[in-house]
């Protein structure tokens, strides 16, 4: 870690690499995040509408429940788990392959701090970009819920919109963004570590990739609990 956060050789090169990583790890994850969010938003609305079918429960609570689920848990924690699979395995296999094909050795020979050169831009890129994915996921998930309400007629869309505005607490969005920033750091650093210390052949790179996804998922779940306790109670 100390090596990763040591002073970069040339800031300009690092800036360029940060933008490259933002595209590779962030922009390229928009499609997956959007597709999953729209379906989950729709499914939550549908499930809530079926479960809360009682004359004593106001219908707008369906919109409220969808918003809360998306904001508090899905768009940060579940999206982080999905990204751990996509981005985490990508980082571990990329750096692992660089290790076994001596590309990291080549950087070291040039006098480059390879850990900092390869890992720091990825950490900065994900910590800054993943919160945008969370915001996007919240918006698209809620739109998914609205679409299913409007298309199936299971509830009046106006009730859904009323529920979205009901008891809105801005801190919940901030809490979610803090969580995803922490999760981004966890995913990137654990995956990069697994890749950087990969040894041997392509089989080992595969193992490093699996280890990266499993370890980051577990650590994400643990930190989800810790952060919820710290920030919401």
């Amino acid at each position: 870690m100390q090596k990763v956060f040591s002073r970069p050789e040339k800031m300009r090169i690092y800036r360029r690499r940060i933008f490259y990583e933002m595209e590779a790890l962030g922009l390229n994850s928009i499609g997956l995040t959007a597709i999953i969010s729209v379906f989950i938003g729709a499914a939550i609305t549908l499930q809530m509408a079926i479960s809360l079918e009682s004359p004593f429960i106001p219908r707008y609570l369906i919109g409220y429940a969808t918003r809360e689920t998306m904001t508090l848990e899905f768009s940060s924690t579940v999206v982080a788990l999905i990204l751990a699979g996509k981005v985490g395995s990508n980082i571990a296999s990329e750096i692992g392959t660089m290790r076994i094909t001596e590309q990291i050795d080549a950087l070291e020979i040039m006098g480059v701090n390879s850990a900092s050169y390869l890992i720091l831009p990825k950490i900065v890129a994900t910590v800054f970009f993943f919160p945008f994915l969370t915001i996007l996921s919240m918006i698209i998930g809620i739109i998914g819920g609205y679409m299913i309400a409007a298309l199936t007629g299971i509830m009046i869309p106006a009730d859904y919109v009323e529920g979205l505005q009901y008891c809105f607490v801005q801190w919940e969005v901030t809490y979610s963004l803090i969580k995803i920033a922490v999760f981004a750091f966890i995913i990137t650093s654990i995956s990069a570590y697994c890749g950087y210390y990969a040894k041997g052949n392509s089989l080992e790179v595969g193992k490093a990739s699996t280890r990266a996804v499993v370890s980051s998922s577990i650590v994400i779940m643990i930190f989800n609990l810790i952060l919820t306790q710290l920030l919401l109670t």
């Binding site: 660089m98 094909t101 001596e102 590309q103 050795d105 080549a106 020979i109």
Partner: peptide
């Protein structure tokens, strides 16, 4: 301190080790 020497070192690896 080794970095200063390494700037004077060139190395050709078995597989080339070019950045993919």
């Amino acid at each position: 301190a080794r970095k200063r020497i390494r700037k004077n070192v060139g190395m050709i690896f078995q597989g080339g080790a070019l950045l993919d």
